[in-house]
């Protein structure tokens, strides 16, 4: 598809800091190439704002290739925008029409408070990982990598789960603000591999306990998270997490 230039109206959430109230601001943007990415479009807006001596819109991003999980954004009411299986940084302007109004908001979740404008604080995810998202091995003194064969389907499924980038779209989309998809991705990855199997139940228990403690909601299996996950993490992993969790409680 040949590229062309389009004009846009942006409705962007501006909020000074965690404590202030925040409101939408409207901006007109002209001559945006449909070949540019969504974040490049915001770059253009920010250059324009700097030119007018105004503060640019703060937003999180880093790799700009869909892998670091730093970018976020609700775009027209959808986490990571209208395209499926991609992050905001991979979204391109050819998905939008000339003259369209685009509403841009941060993740709106109690456990991820707004830092400024479109940036949120996802430290809660870190705490969940610290509670159990690992195999308890130290560096060194490890047997040969091929000592334990792993069936390819298991390795592949573990890889599917391991693809989670920790972006938070699942939480932001869930009406209960549950972090189950995120937690299940790690629990499931490690439970599928012999190296992680040993601690599978206790891991599930510790991570879920931390998740509850941090105020994330319960999972009521609505599946919205799966729809918006840029990495295609499926509800099947939540089912596996539930099994591990049950096991842990039976043992207790």
């Amino acid at each position: 598809m040949a590229s062309k230039n389009i004009n846009l109206k942006l409705k962007v959430w501006r909020q000074e800091n965690a404590k202030s109230k925040g409101q939408f601001e409207n901006y007109d943007l002209k001559n945006i190439s449909t070949d540019s990415s969504f974040l490049e479009m915001i770059d253009v807006l920010n250059e324009q704002l700097v030119g007018e001596n105004k503060e640019p819109v703060a937003f999180d991003h880093d790799c700009r290739e869909g892998i670091c999980g730093m970018c976020s954004l609700f775009i027209n009411g959808q986490a990571h925008g209208p395209d499926s299986l991609i992050t905001t940084c991979q979204l391109h302007m050819r998905k939008f029409k000339d003259g369209e109004t685009i509403t841009i908001e941060p993740w709106r979740v109690g456990s991820f408070p707004v830092i400024k404008d479109l940036m949120v604080d996802r430290t809660a995810y870190e705490k969940i990982m610290q509670a159990g998202g690992f195999v308890s091995v130290n560096t060194g003194g490890i047997p040969d990598a091929n000592a334990i064969p792993i069936p390819k389907p298991n390795a592949d499924e573990a890889m599917d789960a391991a693809a989670c980038i920790g972006c938070g779209a699942c939480v932001a989309t869930c009406k209960n603000s549950s972090a189950m998809l995120f937690v299940s991705a790690k629990v499931s990855q490690l439970a599928l591999l012999p190296q992680g199997r040993v601690e599978a139940s206790i891991r599930a228990k510790n991570m879920v306990a931390k998740m509850d403690e941090l105020g994330f909601g319960n999972c009521s299996n609505t599946g919205a998270c799966e729809m918006e996950c840029p990495k295609g993490i499926t509800l099947a992993h939540i089912a596996r997490l539930n099994r591990e969790f049950l096991c842990a409680n039976v043992k207790d």
Binding site: F134, V135, V137, T139, G140, I142, P143, A145, A155, D156, A158, M159, A162, Q189, L190, L193, Q195, G196
Partner: peptide, 8 residues
């Protein structure tokens, strides 16, 4: 090391 950590 990586295999032991669960790198798939």
């Amino acid at each position: 090391q990586s295999v032991a950590q669960g790198v798939p």
